[in-house]
Computed example of a mutant assay.
Amino acid sequence: MSHTAHIPSHRKPRRSASKLAVRAGVAGGVLSTLAMAGTASASPAEPVAETTLEMPVLNLDLAAEVASAVTTAAENTRSAAVEGELNAQEESARSGAAAEAKQAKEAAQKKADEEKKAKEEADRKAAAERASRTAARQTLQSTSGSASGSGSGSGSSTGSQPGAGTVTAPATGSAAAIVNFARAQVGKAYVMGGTGPSSYDCSGLVQAAYRQAGISLPRMSQAQSSSGTSVSLNALQPGDILYWGSRGSAYHVAVYVGGGKFVGAQNPSTGIVERSLSYDKPTGAVRVL
């Protein structure tokens, strides 16, 4: 054998340049990727906050409580509305009551003023009546004294007295009804505004007396003195209306009952009386019958 026999070589076979280039590129890419990853891991990363919303779970007890709360709130609202309405009604009622009380007070005050005025007027008329009668009596007494001192006893003074020429026969028919009624009231009280049956004022008595004969007279003395026709005081007949003052504005009236006498509701102190014409001479007379 030859001493130069072939011995297998232990060297790796040479790689081709193209394979080496490919491997070098791959290695570079891997190294670049690792470098970038290292850089990224070197800077601290911001932790990402995650929020998880948990929905409440309603059980039966909580639902019942919610329903009860809603019901209570509704009831409270209704109660508040009712209370507000009641308060408004109470306030309205108080306002109305105050207004009514004010009106009632004003009406009472007005009535009191009217009554006071009427009383003052009545007192004035009564005072005027008393003064007139006093003056008439004084005049009559003075005239009677003069006549009795200078008279010759022929009775000439009698003819000048009111009623001297009047009819003295008893009243009949309607006149009798008027006279009898008037005389039946003698002794009863005089009350301003009275129309019977227990008390009268002057015109109330005359009106009531004429009502017995079916005759309707005005209520006030002024109007009664304007009724019928005027008659002389020397020609009076039973049932004639006597008046004091001017006709149409008389302040007192009475009923002539014959015999030179009259019945009238004079004043609170005397009441209803029957008097002679000489007691208080009337101003005039009217005849309605």
Rank of each mutant, 00 (worst) to 15 (best):
I241G: 04
G259K: 06
G151L: 05
L20Q: 03
V179T: 08
A235Y: 04
K12V: 08
R23P: 02
V273M: 12
R94C: 01
E85Y: 06
F262E: 09
K125C: 00
E106D: 13
K119T: 02
L31F: 13
A147D: 04
R137L: 10
G84M: 10
R94V: 04
S198A: 15
M36W: 12
A135P: 09
L236D: 00
V231R: 02
G38C: 06
L242D: 09
E129H: 09
V70R: 14
Y190W: 14
K261Y: 04
S144W: 04
G271V: 06
A213D: 08
G214M: 03
S68I: 03
D113R: 10
S95A: 11
R137D: 02
M55A: 12
A184I: 03
A177I: 04
S278K: 04
A21V: 14
A74C: 11
A112T: 01
I178S: 01
V70A: 15
I215Q: 03
N234I: 00
A164V: 03
G151M: 05
K111G: 12
S150D: 03
A27L: 15
S150L: 08
P170L: 01
V253K: 07
R14P: 09
E54M: 10
A45W: 13
A128V: 02
K117D: 06
A98P: 11
G149I: 02
V70H: 11
A40T: 14
T229Y: 02
L60H: 10
T134Q: 10
G193C: 08
D280L: 00
L233T: 02
A64K: 12
S157A: 11
T168E: 14
F181R: 12
A135D: 10
T72P: 00
R14C: 07
G228S: 13
E85H: 03
A171M: 06
S18I: 08
A69C: 13
Q161N: 09
V57R: 08
R287E: 04
L60R: 14
Q212P: 15
A98Q: 15
G173Q: 03
A24W: 07
G204V: 01
V286H: 09
A35H: 08
S146T: 05
K188Q: 12
R137Q: 15
G165W: 01
G193T: 00
A63M: 02
E85T: 09
A254V: 00
D113Y: 06
S276N: 15
S199V: 00
G163D: 00
T270M: 13
A24K: 05
S160M: 12
E46A: 14
E114P: 08
A27C: 15
A49M: 10
L277E: 03
V82I: 13
E274S: 09
H252S: 13
I215N: 05
D201A: 00
T51W: 03
V286E: 06
L217M: 15
T134K: 10
A45M: 14
S230A: 11
S152Q: 12
A21T: 12
T139R: 15
E65C: 06
M36K: 03
A171R: 04
V255C: 02
L58Q: 07
Y279I: 02
E46G: 12
F181D: 10
P162H: 02
K117W: 08
S154W: 01
K125E: 11
L242Q: 08
A209M: 01
L53C: 00
G151H: 10
A135R: 15
S148T: 12
K110C: 05
V70C: 04
